[in-house]
Every structure is written in structure tokens, then in C-alpha cells.
Amino acid sequence: MTTEASGPDIDAIDGAQPGWVAWLRRVPVTLALAWLVVFIVLLWAVAPGLFTSYSGTVGVPGEQLRPPSLEHVLGTDGLGRDLYARIVYGAVHSLSGAFVAVTVGLLSGTLLGLVAGARGGWTDATIMRLVDSMLAVPSLLLSLSIIVLLGFGTVEVAIAVGAVSVARFARLARSEVIRVRRSDYVEAAFGSGGTFWAVLWRHILPNSLTSVIALAALQFGSAILAISTLGFLGYGAPPPTPEWGLLIAEGRNYLSRAWWLTAAPGLVVVLVVLAADRISKAIGKTAP
């Protein structure tokens, strides 16, 4: 799909590079790497079978606790399961959990913030005091309280993690709405007879979206961290699920004999979170 062979275009005649090359050059290396990490992990989640021939849950007898080698890139665990395969198959659990968490936080938080910012008055005060009190409790404690209510499991943990971010999204959406509301074109939209919800949907929401998406990317990384923490504490999916936090928890039992069991899944978590952080910063820069 390149334009190189399609004959001389305007850029080429000028002696300059085609537009997409120039565009690629402007992308910082770290940002490109971040997208690459996210892309690979997404592929792991969608089609794990393409990346490994081993099973993520069934071990090979007699191959227990092998250190990393050509045969097992990241070694094997105490039941002879290939660690790389387990990490690849675990991607779908961590990613879908983070996706659910961010969706929960984004939708309910943004809605709350939009309504608070647009309505003002008592509605605003009530919603914001609720948000304040959510921020007053450490996020891990808040998640744990919700888990007590919902029970243990992958979806429950994801919802608990997402509920924590509701407050952040609400605050951001509210401040964005207040910023946009003051602008002339929103005044004009109201003046030309737009109803409250129509103006909200047509004018305020689109203009607040960039910062909200930047926060969503950041929260995606935090959600992966939080989900792995709750998985490690034993509140997420039960074993033999290869969820990343659970992998680290299981590897802890072999700390003195098999360093790779804890080191490798942790490094993957760090890389994904760093990537989400980098992408969030890049999106945030484009915000008005």
C-alpha cells in the first residue's frame, strides 16, 4: 500500500519525501515503541495461537521449572507450563479487564461530570461532593469495598477498578464542560434555540473529547496495574487462569529456584503501563 511505485507524485518531484514518511519521522521513537507494545499485546489477546504453539493452561510433564531456553523462551513453571505461552494467553484477561474498567469509569464518570458542569447549582454540588468523597478513600480500599459487595472474579475486579476512576473522569469532564460552556459558539448555539441536551451532544461533548480520551489511555495503564494487584491478592480470576497478577503470585512460591516466573510477567505489566502512559501524554498534547 505504498505510494513509492505509483509514479512521481508532487512530493517526489519537489525532492521531498512522501507525506507519510515525513509524518512517520515526526513521531518520536518512544511513542512508536509504545504503540508497538500495545499492538503486540492486543494481538496476543485476539489471536494467542499465532504467537505460541504451547498451551496456556496445560503443562508438559517432566518439563517443570526449566530456565529460559530456545525451546521455552521464558522458561516453564512448576507444572511444566510454558511461561511465555501463559503470558500470551493471559493478555486477554488483563486487557479485557482493563477495557471493562475504563469503559465503566469513562461512561459513568463523563456522564456525571457533563451533567454536573452543564446543570450547575444543586445538581453540581451534590455530584461533586459524591466525587470528593470517592477521592477521599484510597483507590485500593475503594476497590476492595466494591469487591466485598460484588464477590470475587474477573468481571467483578474490573468493575471495582473502573468504579474508582469514575471520580477522575467526572472531574475532568466537568472542568472541560465549564471551559467549553464559556466559549462564544456554545452561547450562540443556546441563543439560536438549541435545547440543553442538543447543545451538550452537538457542541460540548465533541470539544471535551480529546482530554477525556487522554485520561482514558492513562487510566487503561492504571487499570492494568490495579487488576494485576487485585489478582495477586487473590480476588480476581481463580487459578489456572493465566492472569498476569496471578502469574506473579504463583511464581512467588518458586522465588529461590525460578526467578523468571516472577520477573517476566512483571516486566510485561511494566511495559504495557509505560506504553499507555506515553500514548496518553501524546494524546494530551493535542488537546486544546
Binding site: G221, L225, S228, L233, I248, G266
Partner: peptide
């Protein structure tokens, strides 16, 4: 970006 529990395990390691 580092999970706290993993950091602790790595330090022990």
C-alpha cells in the same frame, strides 16, 4: 508504572 507487589518480590529476589 511498576506494580508495588512485583517490586517487593523483585527486591526479595
Amino acid at each position: 508504572s511498576v506494580p508495588v507487589f512485583w517490586l517487593g518480590i523483585m527486591l526479595i529476589q
